[in-house]
Structures are given as C-alpha cells and as structure tokens.
Design a protein around this nucleic acid. Structure first.
Length: 426
DNA sequence: GCCATCACG
DNA sequence: ACGTACGTGATGGCA
C-alpha cells in the first residue's frame, strides 16, 4: 500500500470520528407517521393474502411461500434458478414476472415492500437519548475496495425514491417510501447541502484508459451515454440516437465498470427493451463497443494482466486489493477474479477521491473557522449540515474542494442541492 | 451460523 | 459445458 493511501486513511480517522459523534437529526414525528401508515397497510395486506391463500402461512418463510405458489396454487415458474436447498426462488424479479399470473402476487410484493420499509423505521428510531440524534458506525476498513461501510444503523442504504410527478402519483407505498429521506433534517437555523460526484466511476475509467473518445466527451461536455450509443449503434448523427439506444449505452457503460459479461448484459438488455436478447446479441454489442473504444479495451486487459502478475489490483492512488481468485484452479473463480481486477481499481479510485475530498473539506472548514459539518458520506455523495449564514461560503467551498481534490485529464464535477431535509438536498 | 431477500452506491 | 455483472448491512427463517 502506498504511503499516500496510508496518510490519507490516517487523516480520515479524525473526520470519521467527527461524523459519528455529530450524528444526524431525525424528524421523529414524520417517522412515526410513516410507520403508522405502514403498519396499517401491513395489516390489510396480510389479511388479504391469507384470504386469497385460504390458509395461514408465514410470509417471511420463503420456503412456505414457494410451496404455496408453485405447489398449492400450481403457478408455472418463470425462472429456472433455484436456491441451494432446491427451492424455486421467490425473489422480487421472479414475483414481478408472475404478477399477471395470480392475484395474490401483487399483495405479496407489497407485503415484502412494507416489511422492508418498516425495518428502516425501526433502525431510524434509535436516536441517542442525550444528543437526540442518530449516530452510525463508519467502518473505515470495512470493504475490499477501499470504500467504507456503515452500520448500526446503515445510513448508506436508506431508500432513495423520487416521485416523477408528485401530484399524479397513486402508488401509496411509493409515496411512503419517498418520505424516508425527508426524515433526515437539519437542526434549527441550519440547512442540509448535498453534493454528488457526477459519474465518478466512469470518469475514473476514462482517466485510467485515456481512451480518446471518452477524454474528448468529458473535456467537451458531451453526453457520455449518447456518445456511446452513437458509436456502438453506428448512427450517422449524434442527434439521431434514440432514448432506448441511450439507455442501452448507459447499461453498457455501467457494465464495463463491473467487468461485464455477455449473459449479464443480455439480461439487462431484455429488461430495458422488454424484448428477449440472447447472449449472442450481447456479445455482438460488446464487440462493437470494444472496436470503437479501443482505449477501454486495452485498459481492461491491462488491469487483468496487472492483477494476474502481482496478485493484487491497484487504484490510481496506490490502494491495493489482493485477488487470489486469479490463481484458482476453478475457471468460474478465475472469471470472478478477472471481474474483480477490472472493477476494484475503478470503485477503489473513486473511493480514494471522495476520501481525499472529505479530508480537504474538513480541513477547509476548520481553517475558516466555520460551524458547518460533514454529516454523511454515501459513496459518491457528501451531506453537510450548514448554518444558514454559511450557505453561500459552503457552496463555494464544497464545489472547490470536491472538484479540485485531484488533477485528472478530465474535470470532476459535482451536483449541489440544498434544503431543509435530505430529499430536498439531493 | 448460513441462506435468501432487498435497500443503497 | 458451465453460469456471471461490482461493493456493502439488516432481517428472519432454518438447521
């Protein structure tokens, strides 16, 4: 591990301690209201399911649910994957596919959703009796890639549901889910400012690959997914790219970061277009992509070679991750190792960058004698609690520190938002 | 203690 | 021939 990363992690300790001690304010009344509405829905939904099923089952038992659906009610499974116990899977993806096949399915999906949301209510209620705020644990070395994780409670997986058309939304559960980030509020006289890095992982990929088209796109403010579609689908003009083509291109760009497989891409393609796409379709598309983006292709190959040779992958800033999977005798595990070798430097470099930005923001706040505080980090986003009279200076400070934390071949950009709660600040 | 599920980036 | 996207944490059922 490079000395730079060691130093960074050392400096970061103090920042994380401050975040944990400071905590975040929760709107308890709103939270209670959300919980109340969920409990009501839970009761009516459970009753309805038992009525349709004609008997009592434990809905939390996937085994009992699977038996009910595929034996008692004789539904035809639509996916082949089975769990280790041989049970036909009853996950959200499969149940959604079965939605039209039986009236009980939508109720089961809702039951699951309600239960999940209620568990968030329970976690968020645990405010500290003395501070009246919610304090999480930030686990600095919690992940293999260099991100940190968050627990007790985990504030990095709070539902993030945005309503497209607030007035016309009829799905009550969706409305309730959208309230969770409204529960995180600023204390009196303060506002929350949220700052997200825009496409940080794809920018890292651009930096690592030095791919000429990606560099050009980011340096000239060209829509990266549109450009990808333009080149993959061989359109004559960039303006001719359709919405669906852009969506597919976005999926490819995401897939790159994960060490995309043809089958994985084919599944995503099927989901987007609602038309079946074979593994061969996906392979063709990937090959078209790599013909165009030659820099990305050689970069990914280089990442695998590097990890193969050294036994570990390395981020732009020298953070390493051992990848013993590459030395396995099992082909499947070696394939997994290749994906890790491609993904870890990307995810890890992005983590390095935001960790550096956190240290720099904290330092700048202290040096200027401001009262503002970092209160959360969600992988590519920072949330600040800012006194009203510091809003203007903090907006400038955050933008400057986050965007200029490192000098890359392309700009890093952030999106800023502010408001009385996290939903508004996002 | 492991598995399946589902929330986030 | 095979079966896949990367990284987490909380929960409840089950052995």
């Amino acid at each position: 591990m490079d000395i730079a990363i060691n130093t960074l992690e050392h400096q970061l300790i103090n920042v994380l301690v401050k975040i944990e001690i400071n905590g975040v304010k929760i709107d308890i009344e709103k939270l209670n209201d959300v919980e109340h509405r969920l409990l009501n829905r839970l009761q009516t939904t459970t009753e309805k399911i038992m009525e349709i099923a004609g008997k009592e089952i434990n809905l939390n038992s996937n085994e009992q649910l699977s038996t009910l659906l595929f034996e008692t009610l004789e539904l035809q499974p639509k996916v082949t994957s089975k769990g280790k116990s041989g049970m036909i899977t009853v996950n959200k993806l499969h149940l959604t596919k079965l939605k039209e096949d039986h009236e009980i399915i939508p109720f089961i999906l809702n039951y699951r959703k309600i239960n999940t949301l209620l568990s968030f209510c329970n976690q968020l209620k645990e405010v500290h009796p003395k501070t009246g705020r919610l304090h999480c644990n930030l686990n600095q070395i919690g992940t293999a890639t260099g991100r940190f994780s968050c627990s007790n409670p985990n504030l990095q997986n709070i539902p993030n549901v945005k309503l497209k058309d607030k007035d016309n939304e009829t799905d009550e559960l969706k409305i309730i889910a959208s309230k969770f980030r409204e529960v995180f509020i600023a204390k009196k006289g303060y506002v929350l400012i949220g700052a997200d890095y825009s496409q940080i992982e794809l920018r890292v990929m651009t930096e690592m690959s030095q791919d000429s088209f990606l560099l050009d796109a980011y340096n000239n403010g060209i829509d990266i997914h549109k450009l990808t579609a333009f080149k993959v689908f061989n359109c004559s003009k960039i303006s001719e790219v359709t919405e669906e083509q852009r969506k597919i291109a976005k999926t490819i760009n995401f897939g790159l970061i994960y060490g995309m497989s043809a089958v994985g891409l084919a599944e995503s393609l099927t989901a987007i277009t609602k038309k079946h796409h074979s593994k061969e379709d996906a392979e063709k598309m990937m090959s078209d992509y790599f013909t165009q983006f030659k820099g990305v292709k050689s970069c990914l190959e280089g990442l695998v070679d590097y990890a193969d040779h050294h036994g570990y992958s390395r981020t732009l800033f020298g953070r390493i991750r051992p990848i013993p999977e590459l030395a396995s005798n099992d082909l499947k595990i070696r394939e997994k190792g290749k994906r890790l070798a491609m993904n870890s430097p990307v995810q890890g470099s992005a983590a390095d960058i935001i960790k550096m930005a956190m240290v720099n923001c904290d330092k700048a706040i202290t040096e200027k004698g401001l009262q503002s505080k970092i209160i959360l980090q969600i992988h590519d986003e920072l949330l600040f609690e800012v006194p009203e009279n510091e809003v203007e200076i903090m907006e400038k400070l955050i933008k400057y520190e986050m965007e200029n934390v490192v000098k890359l071949s392309i700009p890093l950009t952030i999106e800023l938002g502010k408001g009385a709660n996290w939903a508004e600040a996002h």
